[in-house]
């Protein structure tokens, strides 16, 4: 039996392009519905509370421990060449530029991506999405657009809060464990921080929020079969949003800081 070795490669590649195309059209259609009336302010608000407010504990805990570990680890490193003074600098830059958006993004991908995919997936397999269509409601507009808006807007706010909590975590360890002067530490933190550091983190956050909401909605919306299909959609949503977050993080970092 002869098999063309290029066949499976070609098939995988074509599938990949097909998926990218489908996700792009889905995202485009979702955004188009988000900017065109009718709007659903009530649902947007509910999603904002779900995605934003209820993610605060998870994001806050992640940020505070990330900041604490960062202070501790950089102290170990920097004390070897007597550069302990740079800890405040390292903590604040790492948190605002990278760890804030990425860690918050990954945590919320697990929390929100999974619940979006499971909710919309269940609505799909129980025909609730079809029911929306028969009740003069466009499911893209009613289900997908509000979640995309909520992801896009709430993530930067979450990350801003995570930044503050993360720096605070570093401060606690530096002051109470490593014996730094508190006022001095805060002064150093503010001295080094530029607007661009925070801004780049917030832009990343908006992109990550969009990715998480998009992947949750896309996989849920296209789930097939019963409980198993919904389970698969949930897994795919979380895995794909985590991978996309890490990939786009690199691309965004390149764009911001390579010049």
């Amino acid at each position: 039996m002869t098999m063309n070795p290029f066949q499976p490669i070609g098939r995988a590649l074509l599938n990949l392009f097909a998926v990218i195309g489908r996700i792009s059209t889905f995202a485009g259609s979702g955004m188009m519905h988000a900017v065109r009336p009718p709007y659903y302010p009530r649902i947007v608000l509910r999603q904002m509370v779900d995605i934003g407010f209820y993610s605060l504990p998870v994001v806050g805990l992640t940020a505070v421990f990330a900041g604490m570990v960062l202070a501790l680890q950089s102290y170990t490193g920097f004390s070897r060449f007597s550069a302990e003074g740079a800890i405040a600098n390292v903590v604040v830059l790492s948190i605002t530029r990278e760890l804030g958006p990425v860690l918050a993004g990954l945590m919320v991908a697990g929390r929100i991506g999974a619940s979006l995919a499971a909710e919309i997936g269940t609505m799909r397999v129980t025909e609730q999405i079809d029911a929306l269509t028969t009740l003069s409601t466009n499911p893209m507009k009613y289900l997908v657009a509000p979640r995309l808006i909520a992801g896009l807007t709430m993530f930067p706010i979450l990350v801003l809060i995570a930044d503050i909590i993360g720096v605070f975590g570093g401060y606690i360890v530096a002051v109470y464990k490593l014996g730094f002067n508190g006022a001095n530490y805060m002064q150093k933190t503010m001295d080094f921080l530029t607007f661009e550091d925070v801004q780049s983190g917030l832009v990343k956050a908006a992109v990550f929020g969009f990715i998480v909401a998009l992947m949750g909605c896309y996989h849920g919306y296209n789930s097939k079969g019963g409980a198993q299909g919904v389970g698969m959609a949930t897994t795919n949503a979380v895995v794909s949003s985590c991978i996309l977050i890490l990939c786009s993080d690199y691309v965004l970092t390149e764009m911001f800081f390579s010049k």
Binding site: T126, Q128, A131
Partner: peptide, 12 residues
């Protein structure tokens, strides 16, 4: 149109 779905398809 109005439709009665098999499982009801109520919005839970």
């Amino acid at each position: 149109f109005g439709m009665l779905f098999q499982g009801g398809a109520l919005f839970d």
